[in-house]
Amino acid sequence: MIKRPVAPAVARRDFIRLAGATAAGFLALGATSDRIRIVASITSLSLDDELTRRSMTESATTRLGGLIAGLRQRGWVEGVNFHFELRSSFGGPDKMKAAVAELIDLRPDVILTGSTVETAAIIAATKTIPIVFATSNDPVGNGFVQSLAHPGGNVTGFTSSTPEMGGKWLQLIKEAVPDIQRVGVLFNPASTPRAGRYYLDSLEQEAASSGVAVVQAPISTPAEIDGAIGRFAESPKAAMISLVDSFLVVNRQAITATAAKYRVPMIYPFHYFIDAGGLMSYGPTLEVRSADYVDLILRGTKAGDLPVQSPRKYELLINRTVADSLGLKIPFTLLARADEIRE
Results as ranks from 00 to 15, higher is better:
Phe15Trp: 13
Phe15His: 08
Ile16Leu: 15
Ile16Glu: 14
Leu27Tyr: 08
Leu29Thr: 07
Ala31His: 03
Ile36Ala: 08
Ile36Val: 15
Arg37Val: 05
Asp48Cys: 01
Arg53Ile: 00
Leu71Asp: 00
Leu71Gln: 02
Arg74Glu: 11
Gly79Phe: 04
Leu103Asp: 01
Asp105Phe: 07
Asp105His: 13
Leu112Ala: 10
Ser115Val: 11
Ala121His: 04
Val132Met: 01
Pro139Asn: 07
Leu148Tyr: 02
Gly157Ala: 06
Phe158Thr: 02
Thr159Gln: 01
Pro163Arg: 08
Glu164Asp: 14
Ile173Phe: 04
Ile173Leu: 03
Ile173Cys: 04
Pro178Phe: 10
Pro178Met: 11
Val183Phe: 00
Val185Ile: 14
Val185Ala: 08
Asn188Asp: 15
Pro189Thr: 12
Leu200Phe: 05
Gln205Tyr: 09
Ala207Val: 07
Gln216Asn: 15
Ala217Phe: 11
Ala217Gly: 08
Ile229Pro: 03
Arg231Val: 12
Glu234Thr: 15
Ser235His: 14
Ser242Arg: 07
Val244Asn: 13
Val244Gly: 07
Asp245Phe: 09
Ile255Asn: 09
Val264Trp: 05
His271Pro: 00
Tyr282Asp: 04
Pro284Ser: 13
Thr285Val: 13
Arg299Phe: 03
Thr301Ala: 15
Leu306Met: 14
Ala336His: 11
Ile341Lys: 05
Arg342Trp: 12
